[in-house]
Design a protein around this nucleic acid. Sequence first.
DNA 1: TGTAGCATGTAAGCCGTTACATGATTGA
DNA 2: TCAATCATGTAACGGCTTACATGCTACA
Lengths: 188, 188
Amino acid sequence: MSQDLPTTSYALLGLLTFGDDLSGYELKQRADRTLRFYWVSPAMSQVYTELARLTELGLVHARDDTTAPTRSTRRYQITAAGRRDLQRWLASTAVEFPALKHPVALRLLMGHVVDPETSRSMLDGYLTMLAERRAELQTVRDSLVLDPESAVDRFRFPRMVADWGLDYYASERAMVEELIRRVDTDPP
Amino acid sequence: MSQDLPTTSYALLGLLTFGDDLSGYELKQRADRTLRFYWVSPAMSQVYTELARLTELGLVHARDDTTAPTRSTRRYQITAAGRRDLQRWLASTAVEFPALKHPVALRLLMGHVVDPETSRSMLDGYLTMLAERRAELQTVRDSLVLDPESAVDRFRFPRMVADWGLDYYASERAMVEELIRRVDTDPP
DNA sequence: TGTAGCATGTAAGCCGTTACATGATTGA
DNA sequence: TCAATCATGTAACGGCTTACATGCTACA
């Protein structure tokens, strides 16, 4: 039985449980559409490194795509052992509390060091970024419709997670708008 | 002019702008009361490493505390150069979008791999953790009252950030409660 | 014909962690 | 007297990033 791998390994392994096999390149794209919003967007180099390790451990199976033209493309699919280990990990390891690295909050904390406009425009800029992010996630969410080809609803959980993210961005926007009001009016 | 340091360096430097000087030990405690909730809780070893670097760069000044009994305690205070560099960093470097590592969302994404109860109890467990965290932050928030000793309101911005965090935990709770409903009822 | 996208990897290095190491002080 | 807290550091290492390296394919 394999020791626990880093969470990102299981994250990538999990992306291979949606019924298709992917190349490293495609896996990176899927990570960018999903993981990015609440975990990480692993670097290409890490995706390949991770896939090599998972293959080594027998958790995924690599085969060379012969249908592809001349180009060498390797496609990866999760193995039965991989699925088992993922289930074991999900069922038996402690769930950690989310870790947030929030540069905006960090900088706001030091608001007394700069002039009010710096904090204000930082929050404004954050609202803009937030709107962009939200739009990106909305696009992803819209693509997660019920697939009529598939008997099971493959995207039920991805949809829940995406909706969660959208709600989060919405509440974050409201809170930041309130903070802007406080920055503007609070000073006694 | 110093190059940009890692964000955590500026975070610790920022904690020294509240008008007091701290030992490494105390700085770690302050980080645990503030930074922890939206940045990181640096390890003791990192606090000392960071203080050594900041001293080296002249951004903080170290003095041996003679009032302390026999024990060797070094107290650190931010220098004028440190304050300048912090201001420069705050005013002139790009603000990054928050990075979230959310193991609960990650695991929920893979809900189709486990039985519904696993997801359900995971979300329940998260609600418990969330309530604990919220209580901890509430304690911090309550301590951030207006200091009648001090002419300026030192804690205005820390208070804003703490309130932000409390709102975040509240909205997170509401969203997770909704998700639990969906996990329970959605399955067709 | 040249650039964007597809495709795969290695090497070096940064940030931060855990483990290790040491010792004084306070109070139950 | 023993444990908790205060107090300071070094060493090793893990996870992940950036930079580097290479080459094919589609299309404008």
